[in-house]
Design a protein around this nucleic acid. Structure first.
Lengths: 255, 255
DNA sequence: GACGGTGTTCGGTATCGTCGAACGACGAGC
DNA sequence: GCTCGTCGTTCGACGATACCGAACACCGTC
């Protein structure tokens, strides 16, 4: 593992979590000598990965970071293939649609279609949510190998709202139910008043590569049990997307 | 300059420009030994900055990249302060609004408000445009120090459409006009049919830190000269934003 | 004017990244 | 079906190079 690169990456993540930090502060947080941090920052600055705030001497993430983040999205296969499906799903159910992938113990949103009314909504692409607090996460974890699933159940399961399920045993049982039902539910476990219904997206080998789901007010999605209309639409979309992801692979193989 | 960090950054940028590359290909492009590239990729992979495509062995950008890109936006002062102004401007003129910063020879879009009709539009945040082909870029360059302006005029000025201004002398003259007028114009110089009207945003010291502009169909913005209504709205918004950027600084100083 | 706090520079040491060559696996092609 | 070519990967030794501690320069404060 190349030391300096690893350290540079840690610096970037540290800068991402709190805007504007000085050399000394970074050095303390990472347990490195000031001079070491300074050298790394110099290299990162030359590549525009970090920027120095003149007149304060503090450092922050640089513009190249945004370009690379965008490049990640452009190259993302699941995202590219889900654009049309997500749009269709959103207009079919009249709610917002999110597409996410599992990244460690969190779900990273890679696509987001606004609810098709004219309300002001914030774009969640790039946000990451604890896996156990969203339907997208549960939809993916439910189909992981037992050992990976166990690992995710073991770690810490933060409580975001009063309804977040933090008990590993209860979560495990819920995941079994997700696998049986084919869709995952979330009832105000991340944000009070918001619910989500999601389906898993599989690759050609049957391993989950992401999830797509409908998010909206709990009273429209879950009053009197999950809305059958939404559940059916989400399930179908998940299946179609999975087929498309698999098809892509197969055609590559067939060449 | 730390060699390995610099090389790692080059790898990231290379991966950003073309999705999925192998160790050998990267080694050739950067003039490095395969083993060297492999080691760097290993380190980057451990930090989720790159991902390996199983079954093809190729590498691509990783999810951490998106999170960092997002963190850059969250920490961006101009962006944060422009959110409300951009929204207001968009609804006032009924067109899309973009906010950008200068990044080398290109303008990086850090905020984008859709035209307030219900048409499908793609989000341009993260995109970067040659400075001479958009009003945002001209608005900033017009107020740079003479030497920086000269540098930007000297480099290559790519032709994107038939109307792109690529002649340094003509551009120089246009920049003078921008400074006199207080707004920059762009007439189908990046995309045929699209025009833009932009104003500079200054910090407390009077140096340009960004630009905000209205983009839309040329017939609505520039028929019979620049639409006075839009020009006035853009100019005012730029001034207000500048005041806010400066005010922030001053209050910091006053502490 | 001295102090504590920055960010920055410097130089020696040993660590650590680099390279070339060899390995193993996969797929293509005569 | 065997070989060849190419890919990603591993290994080991060399020596360049990144690391650290200490000293410097700078600012604002007490």
């Amino acid at each position: 593992m190349i030391q300096s690169v690893r350290r540079a990456a840690l610096i970037l993540k540290e800068l991402g979590s709190s805007p504007r930090m000085g050399v000394t502060e970074l050095g303390e947080r990472l347990g490195l000598a000031k001079a070491t941090v300074f050298g790394l920052l110099r290299a990162l600055e030359a590549e525009q990965l970090v920027e120095r705030d003149e007149e304060a001497g503090k450092y922050r993430l640089g513009p190249a970071m945004l370009q690379l983040g965008n490049a990640f999205l452009d190259n993302h296969e699941l995202r590219a293939r889900s654009l049309l499906w997500a749009e269709t799903l959103a207009s079919r159910v009249g709610e917002a649609v999110r597409v996410g992938v599992l990244n460690g113990r969190r779900v990273l949103i890679v696509h987001h279609v606004f609810r098709p009314d004219n309300s002001v909504q914030i774009l969640e692409v790039g946000a990451s949510i604890p896996w156990h607090a969203c339907a997208l996460g549960k939809a993916m974890v439910a189909y992981l190998e037992a050992d990976q699933r166990g690992e995710l159940l073991d770690g810490d399961l933060a409580r975001l709202t009063g309804k977040t399920v933090c008990d590993p045993t209860a979560l495990d049982r819920e995941l079994d139910q997700v696998a049986r039902r084919g869709v995952a539910l979330e009832d105000q476990e991340a944000i009070v008043g918001e619910a989500e219904i999601a389906a898993t997206v599989f690759d050609h080998g049957g391993t989950p590569v992401g999830a797509i789901g409908v998010a909206g007010p709990v009273e429209r999605l879950l009053s009197d049990g999950p809305s059958p209309h939404v559940v059916a639409a989400v399930r179908e979309t998940g299946r179609s997307l999975s087929r498309e992801m698999g098809a892509g692979r197969l055609s590559v193989r067939a060449r």
